[in-house]
């Protein structure tokens, strides 16, 4: 497995949604208010990778929805062919893909919808759903064998 910590910005998934009661409420936000997504300049942000960006505390990148999940996808690098189907169809920007390679899953933002596992074309699938409490090593150890084509 690649080191996913290198791909994570140190602000990722720090706060649970709805837990920031210390911030002002809607009634104090007037018309024309601005929430900055980044600390400092946002010019050329399209060319920066997530780990190079300086996210502000208002960016939902700093929030997490991990508690929504019942099942989690587990990624098996040995079977993956880097087709990037999961990357293009992930609704939560949770597939980490760098330099045309699939690197892993962002468990802070994944909601466990299973779309990635459905669109995975390999045999056996390189993304499978496991219960949230299953350890990654146990999940990888119980990976199914290649299925033979039915004639």
């Amino acid at each position: 497995m690649q080191d996913l910590k290198l791909l994570a910005n140190d602000k990722r998934g720090k706060t649970e949604l709805g837990s920031r009661r210390d911030l002002v409420g809607w009634h104090e936000v007037t018309q024309g208010s601005i929430l900055p997504s980044f600390d400092g300049d946002a010019i050329g942000i399209a060319l920066k990778k997530a780990e190079e960006r300086v996210y502000s505390n208002f960016n939902s990148y700093t929030a997490t929805v991990a508690s929504w999940r019942v099942q989690k996808p587990v990624f098996n690098i040995d079977v993956c062919i880097d087709c990037q189907n999961c990357w293009v169809w992930c609704p939560d920007s949770s597939i980490l893909s760098r330099d045309k390679q699939m690197m892993g899953i962002d468990y802070d933002h994944c909601k466990g919808c299973q779309v990635c596992s459905e669109v995975c074309p390999t045999n056996p699938k390189s993304l499978l759903m496991f219960n949230e409490y299953v350890q990654l090593e146990d999940a990888l150890a119980s990976w199914p064998e290649k299925k033979k084509k039915e004639k």
Partner: peptide, 8 residues
């Protein structure tokens, strides 16, 4: 969803 925005 205040205080967050998902748009960069």
């Amino acid at each position: 969803v205040y205080p967050f925005t998902s748009w960069d």
